[in-house]
Amino acid sequence: MTDATPSRTHATPRLAPSRAQVRGAIGIAVVFIAWQISVWIIALPAYFYPAPADVAAAFVDLTLKGILPSYIIDSARRYALGVATGLTLGVMSGLLIGLSRFWSRLLGPVINFFYAIVEVAWIPLLVIWIGYGFNTILIAISYVVFFPVLYNTLTGVQTAQKTLINAVRTLGASRLQVLTSVILPSALPNIITGFRVGAGFAFRGLIFAEMIAAGSGLGFLIFDGATTRQTDRVVVGMIMTGVLWLAMDRLFLRPLEMATIERWGLVRAKGGGV
C-alpha cells in the first residue's frame, strides 16, 4: 500500500519536487505561526521580541523609504567587487605558483598560515591602516575569497594528469596551449570548490565588516537597528541576509558547480582511466 504512492510519483517526475516544495512551504509557514504564537505567549516589549507583523511593517517602511533597496545595492556591490577581485587574483596566483614545483613547495606553508588568519581578524588592522569604509570591506572580502581559491587552484594544478600534459606536448602544443587545454580545465572543479567556500565565508565576512566599518549595507542595518533599539529592523536585515544568500547559492553558485562538475569532472575521470 505505502509503496504504491512513491512509485507513482516517481513515474511522473514533475510531481516529486513539487511535493517537496509544498512540504517546504508548510515548514516555513509553521515557523511563522510558531513565531507569532510565541510572541503572544512571551508578551515582551516589541524592541525585545518583535512580532512578524512588526517586522513586515518595518520591511514595508524601509522599502518605501528606499533605505532597504539602497542598502542591498551597497552590500551587493561590495560583495561582487570583492569576490571578483579575490577570485581573479586567486586563480592567477594559483596558476603562477602551481605551475612551478619549486614555488608551490616554497610558498605552501606561508599560504596556509595566511589562510588561517580569518578575514574577521584582519578588519581591526585594516581599520587602523585604511580607516572605515569601502576599501577596508573590499580588501577583507577579496582576502577571504583569495585564499581558498588560491589553495584549491594550487591543488588542482598539481593533480593535473601528467600523461595528458605529455600527450598534448607530443602533439606539439605550446606552453600556453598546455595551460589552456589541460591544466586549466582539470583545475576547474577545484577552482569552483574554492570559489564556493570563499563565497560563503565572504558573505559572512561582508555582514561583519559592514557592522564594524560601514555606514550602509545590510550588516549596518542590523547593527544600527540594534543600537537604536529598532529590533524589527534588525530582524528585517537578518531575514534579508538569509534570503540573499539562499538566492545567490541556488541561482548562481550551485548551477555553476553542477555545470563544471558535469562538464569537467567527466573529462577528468576519463583522463584518469588512460
Binding site: R19, A20, R23, G24, A25, I26, G27, I28, V30, V31, Y47, F48, F203, R204, I207, F208, M211, L218, G219, I222, F223, G225, A226, T227, R229, T231, V234, V235, G237, M238, I239, T241, G242, V243, W245, L246, D249
Partner: peptide, 27 residues
C-alpha cells in the same frame, strides 16, 4: 516527510550568517 518539511527552514537558518545574530543576541 519531516525532512522535506524542515529542509528549507534549516537551509534558511543556516544561511542567516551567524554573525548577523550578534546584535539580536546583545538585545
Amino acid at each position: 516527510a519531516v525532512a522535506e518539511t524542515m529542509t528549507p527552514v534549516l537551509s534558511f537558518f543556516q544561511s542567516i550568517a551567524g554573525i548577523a545574530w550578534v546584535p539580536l543576541a546583545i538585545i
